[in-house]
Amino acid sequence: MTRRFILGTVAHRLAILVYIIFALFPLYWLLKVSVTPNDLLYSEGVRMWPSRAGLEHYIFVLEHSDFPKFFKNSVIVSASTAFIVTILASLAGYALSRFTFRGKYWIVVLMLLTQMFPLVMLVAPIFKMLSPLGLTNSLGGLILVYVAFNVPFATFLMQSFFDGIPKDLEEAAMIDGATRFRAFRQIILPLTLPGIAATLGFVFTAAWSELLFALMLISGADASTFPVGLLSFVSKFSVDFGQMMAAGVMALIPACLFFLLIQRYLVQGLTAGAVKG
Protein backbone atom coordinates (compact mmCIF):
# COMPACT_ATOMS: atom_id res chain seq x y z
CA MET A 1 0.00 0.00 0.00
CA THR A 2 2.65 2.54 0.99
CA ARG A 3 4.83 1.56 -1.96
CA ARG A 4 1.97 2.10 -4.34
CA PHE A 5 1.28 5.40 -2.64
CA ILE A 6 4.88 6.56 -3.07
CA LEU A 7 4.95 5.45 -6.69
CA GLY A 8 1.71 7.31 -7.32
CA THR A 9 3.06 10.47 -5.74
CA VAL A 10 6.26 10.31 -7.76
CA ALA A 11 4.30 9.82 -11.00
CA HIS A 12 2.03 12.72 -10.03
CA ARG A 13 4.95 15.09 -9.42
CA LEU A 14 6.71 13.97 -12.61
CA ALA A 15 3.59 14.58 -14.67
CA ILE A 16 3.25 18.04 -13.17
CA LEU A 17 6.88 18.73 -13.95
CA VAL A 18 6.29 17.79 -17.60
CA TYR A 19 3.41 20.25 -17.78
CA ILE A 20 5.46 23.02 -16.23
CA ILE A 21 8.29 22.45 -18.69
CA PHE A 22 5.90 22.37 -21.63
CA ALA A 23 4.21 25.58 -20.45
CA LEU A 24 7.39 27.50 -19.74
CA PHE A 25 9.93 26.26 -22.26
CA PRO A 26 8.75 28.41 -25.22
CA LEU A 27 8.79 31.49 -22.99
CA TYR A 28 12.20 30.54 -21.69
CA TRP A 29 13.43 30.20 -25.26
CA LEU A 30 12.05 33.64 -26.10
CA LEU A 31 13.95 35.10 -23.18
CA LYS A 32 17.10 33.19 -24.04
CA VAL A 33 17.30 34.33 -27.64
CA SER A 34 16.52 37.90 -26.62
CA VAL A 35 19.66 38.03 -24.48
CA THR A 36 21.91 36.13 -26.88
CA PRO A 37 24.34 38.38 -28.76
CA ASN A 38 24.02 38.16 -32.57
CA ASP A 39 27.41 36.59 -33.10
CA LEU A 40 26.52 33.64 -30.84
CA LEU A 41 22.96 33.18 -32.10
CA TYR A 42 23.88 31.02 -35.07
CA SER A 43 27.17 29.55 -33.94
CA GLU A 44 25.87 28.10 -30.68
CA GLY A 45 22.71 26.59 -32.19
CA VAL A 46 20.41 24.92 -29.68
CA ARG A 47 22.43 25.48 -26.53
CA MET A 48 20.18 25.96 -23.48
CA TRP A 49 21.96 29.15 -22.41
CA PRO A 50 24.40 31.27 -24.41
CA SER A 51 28.01 31.43 -23.23
CA ARG A 52 27.63 35.19 -23.08
CA ALA A 53 24.38 37.09 -22.42
CA GLY A 54 23.61 40.77 -22.84
CA LEU A 55 20.84 43.29 -23.09
CA GLU A 56 22.01 44.82 -26.36
CA HIS A 57 18.85 43.80 -28.27
CA TYR A 58 16.70 45.50 -25.66
CA ILE A 59 18.78 48.64 -25.81
CA PHE A 60 18.57 48.71 -29.58
CA VAL A 61 14.81 48.16 -29.58
CA LEU A 62 14.26 50.86 -27.01
CA GLU A 63 16.51 53.43 -28.62
CA HIS A 64 16.45 52.83 -32.37
CA SER A 65 13.03 51.40 -33.14
CA ASP A 66 9.39 52.42 -33.11
CA PHE A 67 8.56 49.91 -30.40
CA PRO A 68 8.35 52.40 -27.54
CA LYS A 69 5.70 54.20 -29.61
CA PHE A 70 3.86 50.96 -30.38
CA PHE A 71 4.02 50.10 -26.72
CA LYS A 72 2.58 53.48 -25.77
CA ASN A 73 -0.20 53.14 -28.39
CA SER A 74 -1.08 49.69 -27.10
CA VAL A 75 -1.19 50.92 -23.52
CA ILE A 76 -3.45 53.82 -24.50
CA VAL A 77 -5.79 51.57 -26.49
CA SER A 78 -5.91 48.74 -23.94
CA ALA A 79 -6.27 50.97 -20.90
CA SER A 80 -8.98 53.15 -22.47
CA THR A 81 -10.84 50.09 -23.68
CA ALA A 82 -10.64 48.43 -20.28
CA PHE A 83 -11.80 51.59 -18.52
CA ILE A 84 -14.77 52.32 -20.80
CA VAL A 85 -15.84 48.69 -21.03
CA THR A 86 -15.82 48.33 -17.26
CA ILE A 87 -18.09 51.34 -16.81
CA LEU A 88 -20.56 50.22 -19.47
CA ALA A 89 -20.45 46.60 -18.33
CA SER A 90 -21.01 47.58 -14.69
CA LEU A 91 -24.17 49.44 -15.61
CA ALA A 92 -25.50 46.75 -17.93
CA GLY A 93 -24.42 43.92 -15.65
CA TYR A 94 -26.21 45.59 -12.76
CA ALA A 95 -29.40 45.86 -14.80
CA LEU A 96 -29.20 42.16 -15.70
CA SER A 97 -28.44 41.16 -12.13
CA ARG A 98 -31.07 43.22 -10.32
CA PHE A 99 -34.04 43.95 -12.55
CA THR A 100 -36.63 41.82 -14.18
CA PHE A 101 -37.84 43.74 -17.20
CA ARG A 102 -39.36 42.98 -20.54
CA GLY A 103 -36.29 43.75 -22.63
CA LYS A 104 -33.94 41.70 -20.47
CA TYR A 105 -34.37 38.50 -22.45
CA TRP A 106 -33.57 40.31 -25.71
CA ILE A 107 -30.53 42.03 -24.28
CA VAL A 108 -29.15 38.68 -23.13
CA VAL A 109 -29.91 37.14 -26.53
CA LEU A 110 -28.18 40.05 -28.28
CA MET A 111 -25.10 39.70 -26.10
CA LEU A 112 -24.94 35.93 -26.49
CA LEU A 113 -25.33 36.32 -30.24
CA THR A 114 -22.29 38.59 -30.43
CA GLN A 115 -20.29 35.85 -28.74
CA MET A 116 -21.43 33.27 -31.24
CA PHE A 117 -20.62 34.63 -34.67
CA PRO A 118 -17.05 34.87 -35.98
CA LEU A 119 -15.78 38.40 -35.49
CA VAL A 120 -13.61 38.05 -38.59
CA MET A 121 -16.87 38.50 -40.52
CA LEU A 122 -16.90 42.11 -39.41
CA VAL A 123 -13.41 43.01 -40.60
CA ALA A 124 -14.51 44.34 -43.98
CA PRO A 125 -17.79 46.09 -43.05
CA ILE A 126 -16.27 47.78 -40.01
CA PHE A 127 -13.43 49.11 -42.13
CA LYS A 128 -15.97 50.47 -44.61
CA MET A 129 -18.05 52.06 -41.88
CA LEU A 130 -15.19 53.65 -39.99
CA SER A 131 -13.21 55.02 -42.91
CA PRO A 132 -15.63 57.83 -43.92
CA LEU A 133 -15.75 58.84 -40.24
CA GLY A 134 -11.99 59.23 -40.19
CA LEU A 135 -11.74 56.47 -37.61
CA THR A 136 -9.41 54.19 -39.55
CA ASN A 137 -5.76 54.56 -38.77
CA SER A 138 -6.72 56.14 -35.45
CA LEU A 139 -6.48 54.89 -31.90
CA GLY A 140 -9.99 56.23 -31.25
CA GLY A 141 -11.49 53.99 -33.90
CA LEU A 142 -9.67 50.98 -32.50
CA ILE A 143 -10.90 51.77 -28.99
CA LEU A 144 -14.49 52.08 -30.24
CA VAL A 145 -14.31 48.67 -31.90
CA TYR A 146 -12.60 46.97 -28.95
CA VAL A 147 -15.09 48.41 -26.47
CA ALA A 148 -18.01 47.03 -28.44
CA PHE A 149 -16.35 43.63 -28.82
CA ASN A 150 -15.60 43.30 -25.12
CA VAL A 151 -18.75 44.74 -23.58
CA PRO A 152 -20.92 41.60 -23.84
CA PHE A 153 -18.43 39.32 -22.12
CA ALA A 154 -17.58 41.94 -19.50
CA THR A 155 -21.30 42.47 -18.84
CA PHE A 156 -21.79 38.79 -18.06
CA LEU A 157 -18.69 38.87 -15.88
CA MET A 158 -19.87 41.90 -13.91
CA GLN A 159 -23.33 40.36 -13.64
CA SER A 160 -21.84 37.33 -11.95
CA PHE A 161 -20.07 39.59 -9.45
CA PHE A 162 -23.24 41.58 -8.74
CA ASP A 163 -25.16 38.33 -8.30
CA GLY A 164 -22.80 37.55 -5.44
CA ILE A 165 -23.85 40.65 -3.51
CA PRO A 166 -27.09 40.34 -1.54
CA LYS A 167 -30.02 42.36 -2.83
CA ASP A 168 -30.84 43.27 0.76
CA LEU A 169 -27.96 45.74 0.82
CA GLU A 170 -29.30 48.14 -1.74
CA GLU A 171 -32.82 47.65 -0.46
CA ALA A 172 -31.58 48.71 2.95
CA ALA A 173 -29.86 51.70 1.36
CA MET A 174 -32.99 52.65 -0.53
CA ILE A 175 -35.00 52.50 2.68
CA ASP A 176 -32.28 54.53 4.35
CA GLY A 177 -33.03 57.26 1.84
CA ALA A 178 -30.86 56.58 -1.21
CA THR A 179 -32.05 56.49 -4.80
CA ARG A 180 -31.28 53.25 -6.57
CA PHE A 181 -28.45 54.85 -8.50
CA ARG A 182 -26.92 56.22 -5.32
CA ALA A 183 -27.24 52.83 -3.65
CA PHE A 184 -25.51 51.35 -6.70
CA ARG A 185 -22.64 53.83 -6.44
CA GLN A 186 -22.19 54.02 -2.68
CA ILE A 187 -23.06 50.51 -1.54
CA ILE A 188 -22.82 48.03 -4.41
CA LEU A 189 -19.86 49.32 -6.45
CA PRO A 190 -17.43 49.55 -3.50
CA LEU A 191 -18.26 45.92 -2.70
CA THR A 192 -17.60 44.89 -6.30
CA LEU A 193 -14.09 46.39 -6.43
CA PRO A 194 -12.36 43.00 -6.81
CA GLY A 195 -14.75 42.18 -9.62
CA ILE A 196 -14.08 45.51 -11.26
CA ALA A 197 -10.34 44.88 -11.06
CA ALA A 198 -10.82 41.46 -12.64
CA THR A 199 -12.93 42.90 -15.44
CA LEU A 200 -10.32 45.59 -16.09
CA GLY A 201 -7.67 42.88 -16.25
CA PHE A 202 -9.59 40.61 -18.61
CA VAL A 203 -10.48 43.41 -21.01
CA PHE A 204 -6.99 44.90 -20.94
CA THR A 205 -5.49 41.52 -21.80
CA ALA A 206 -7.99 40.97 -24.59
CA ALA A 207 -7.37 44.41 -26.12
CA TRP A 208 -3.62 44.02 -25.72
CA SER A 209 -3.71 40.75 -27.68
CA GLU A 210 -6.08 41.74 -30.48
CA LEU A 211 -4.43 41.42 -33.86
CA LEU A 212 -6.72 41.10 -36.89
CA PHE A 213 -8.75 44.29 -36.50
CA ALA A 214 -5.66 46.27 -35.63
CA LEU A 215 -3.97 44.98 -38.80
CA MET A 216 -7.00 45.93 -40.89
CA LEU A 217 -7.75 49.30 -39.39
CA ILE A 218 -4.22 50.62 -38.81
CA SER A 219 -1.78 51.16 -41.62
CA GLY A 220 0.73 53.79 -40.52
CA ALA A 221 3.39 53.35 -37.88
CA ASP A 222 2.03 56.30 -35.90
CA ALA A 223 -1.11 54.53 -34.77
CA SER A 224 0.26 50.98 -34.74
CA THR A 225 -0.35 48.87 -31.71
CA PHE A 226 2.26 46.45 -30.46
CA PRO A 227 1.03 43.37 -32.35
CA VAL A 228 0.82 45.29 -35.62
CA GLY A 229 4.26 46.78 -35.08
CA LEU A 230 5.80 43.43 -34.21
CA LEU A 231 4.32 41.71 -37.26
CA SER A 232 5.49 44.42 -39.64
CA PHE A 233 8.88 44.23 -37.95
CA VAL A 234 8.91 40.49 -38.60
CA SER A 235 8.24 40.91 -42.31
CA LYS A 236 10.65 43.83 -42.66
CA PHE A 237 13.71 42.63 -40.76
CA SER A 238 13.05 38.95 -40.55
CA VAL A 239 16.67 38.14 -39.81
CA ASP A 240 17.02 40.13 -36.62
CA PHE A 241 15.68 37.50 -34.28
CA GLY A 242 17.30 38.88 -31.16
CA GLN A 243 15.59 42.22 -31.50
CA MET A 244 12.24 40.70 -32.36
CA MET A 245 12.35 38.49 -29.34
CA ALA A 246 13.40 41.37 -27.13
CA ALA A 247 10.31 43.21 -28.41
CA GLY A 248 8.28 40.07 -27.80
CA VAL A 249 9.39 39.90 -24.19
CA MET A 250 8.33 43.51 -23.79
CA ALA A 251 4.87 42.69 -25.16
CA LEU A 252 4.65 39.87 -22.66
CA ILE A 253 5.26 42.00 -19.59
CA PRO A 254 1.90 43.82 -19.28
CA ALA A 255 0.03 40.64 -20.16
CA CYS A 256 1.80 38.76 -17.37
CA LEU A 257 1.19 41.56 -14.88
CA PHE A 258 -2.52 41.50 -15.61
CA PHE A 259 -2.49 37.73 -15.47
CA LEU A 260 -1.28 37.93 -11.88
CA LEU A 261 -4.04 40.45 -11.15
CA ILE A 262 -6.86 38.30 -12.53
CA GLN A 263 -5.51 34.86 -11.67
CA ARG A 264 -7.97 34.43 -8.81
CA TYR A 265 -10.91 35.23 -11.06
CA LEU A 266 -9.95 33.01 -13.98
CA VAL A 267 -12.75 30.56 -13.39
CA GLN A 268 -15.40 33.22 -13.15
CA GLY A 269 -14.05 34.97 -16.22
CA LEU A 270 -13.91 31.83 -18.28
CA THR A 271 -17.41 30.76 -17.34
CA ALA A 272 -18.82 34.24 -17.96
CA GLY A 273 -17.41 34.27 -21.45
CA ALA A 274 -17.36 30.56 -22.04
CA VAL A 275 -16.94 31.21 -25.73
CA LYS A 276 -14.20 33.77 -25.37
CA GLY A 277 -10.48 33.18 -25.16
Binding site: P166, E171, A172, I175, D176, T179
Partner: peptide, 18 residues
Protein backbone atom coordinates in the same frame (compact mmCIF):
# COMPACT_ATOMS: atom_id res chain seq x y z
CA UNK B 1 -39.89 55.31 -3.71
CA UNK B 2 -38.77 53.57 -0.52
CA UNK B 3 -36.57 56.56 0.30
CA UNK B 4 -39.61 58.88 0.29
CA UNK B 5 -41.73 56.77 2.62
CA UNK B 6 -39.86 57.58 5.81
CA UNK B 7 -39.83 54.05 7.16
CA UNK B 8 -37.01 51.94 8.58
CA UNK B 9 -36.53 48.24 8.06
CA UNK B 10 -34.60 45.50 9.82
CA UNK B 11 -33.71 42.68 7.42
CA UNK B 12 -33.40 39.00 8.18
CA UNK B 13 -29.83 39.11 6.84
CA UNK B 14 -29.31 42.43 8.71
CA UNK B 15 -28.07 43.91 5.40
CA UNK B 16 -25.26 45.77 7.11
CA UNK B 17 -22.97 47.62 4.70
CA UNK B 18 -19.76 45.57 4.93
Amino acid sequence: QPKDRDIAMVFQSYALYP
